[in-house]
Simulated scan of single mutants.
Amino acid sequence: MDIFLDSLQFYAPIFNNLILLLGVEYFNNGYFLGFFMQCVAKKIDEILPLDDKNMNKEEQNRKKNHFLYTIPLFLAIISDTFQMFYVINKVTNSSSQLSGLNCFLLISSAGLTLGNTINISHELIHRLTTLEQAAGFLNFVRVMYCHYPIFHLLSHHKYVGTEKDPIVAKKDETLYQYLPRQLWGNYVVSWKCENERLIQQEKTSLPQFHYKNRMIYNTLLQLAFPLLILTIYRRKGLYYYLWMVFVAVLEAEIVEYLEHYGLFVTKDNKVSYDCAWNCPQRYTNMSSFKLERHADHHVNAYKEYQISSFEYSWPQLPESYLFMMQVSMKPQLWFSIMNPRLESFFAQKEVPKEHQEFEKKKLDNFYKQQLLTHSIILLISFLF
């Protein structure tokens, strides 16, 4: 019974889908979910107790591989797939009462939940069963991100924390410098990893043309879903779908930026708990299937999310991933918060109290600005 009750928290992504549906159906508004995720979620994180407790060995053994923790993963993907078609149908329907602004805001908000399912696929490709891995991969097809498993498993996990890992953002590298090289670079790295695999396993001199090259099929598969959308909803639906996917992939890449910012920590490819930033905010962890316990994921890549661990001694962000994504979009604020934390980490010292007070003041002011900005957007979305 305790496992059933514990697993209920991980239906939070479906709750997010319901918020979007509520806003559209009852208020004819496309920004309910966007406002919730940008502003309200932080307050929920502040109200709920921190997710900083770890299981003992007995609890881990009971909850490991338990199907009640796998069901929310599958249902979140299914729910979001229905939401994708619902949203595209809504914004392309000639009888829809949504304004052009609300259509744009609705698609953008739906892109945020779609981005979260990239994280769910990430969890599933690390599982050991064929069904789970297949479900994760098929969801990548939906977001035109089929190359992700190759570069993630063959490059990122292999080289995390080293100069060879292209995902680790360099100190003082802005998000806007990082994103262009990542959005294209991940695809290039995937080809490189697959070519190296085939050269080693198949002894071929032309791996890029080999029939076992998964990147050939993945590249073609990435066209499958947009062709389906084009067939059903014509060009207008395709444009909305592509924007939704762009928002989702952008969200995933911003998370990659903040997960490992500046943490070049190993020289011998030995992964340690120092390779990723972590945080214990509960609601964000519920929504992301404990993605914020990212250091433990790298050390124990095949450990299921429900039994992952957290320690305050590991690199720690001052706020949740969801909120720090917004902070990262303002480079000077991001650097003023993160660089002193990075320096304290490398000096093996606690973050000074003065800096923690400085952070709190800066982040509180930033949140007030965000709340005002998104409240104005929400108000405008009701008026137009």
Rank of each mutant, 00 (worst) to 15 (best):
R293S: 06
E196T: 09
T162I: 02
E123K: 05
M338V: 15
N278E: 05
S375Q: 00
I337W: 05
F74H: 13
L18F: 14
S94H: 14
F32R: 07
S336V: 14
A169S: 00
H355Q: 05
S381E: 03
Q38E: 09
S344F: 12
K349Q: 10
N29W: 07
H157G: 04
N116M: 13
L98Y: 12
Q208C: 12
Y178S: 05
T113F: 04
N278M: 02
Y233I: 06
M84Y: 09
G23Q: 06
L291V: 03
A41E: 02
E354M: 12
V247M: 02
T117E: 08
Q133K: 15
F35E: 02
K368M: 14
Y145L: 03
G161V: 00
E59L: 07
Q133C: 10
L101S: 09
W314C: 10
D165E: 01
L206G: 12
L383P: 02
R181K: 11
F323N: 06
H66S: 13
V351G: 01
N116P: 01
K164S: 00
A248V: 00
P315H: 01
L342H: 06
M329G: 14
L250C: 08
T92P: 00
K368E: 08
E163I: 14
V265S: 00
L372H: 07
F15R: 15
R214F: 13
H152L: 00
K90M: 14
A135Y: 04
L101Y: 09
A76P: 13
G34W: 01
Y261C: 06
L33N: 10
S7M: 11
D296H: 05
V271D: 03
L258N: 11
Y145P: 13
K290G: 02
L198D: 09
N56V: 09
E354Q: 11
Q177S: 05
D2L: 14
T373P: 02
F358V: 09
M215T: 09
L50C: 01
Y86S: 07
Y178E: 00
V160G: 01
V255G: 03
P149E: 04
T117H: 09
Q370L: 13
L198W: 10
E202W: 06
N116Y: 01
K64E: 12
A110T: 05
D2A: 08
Q369T: 09
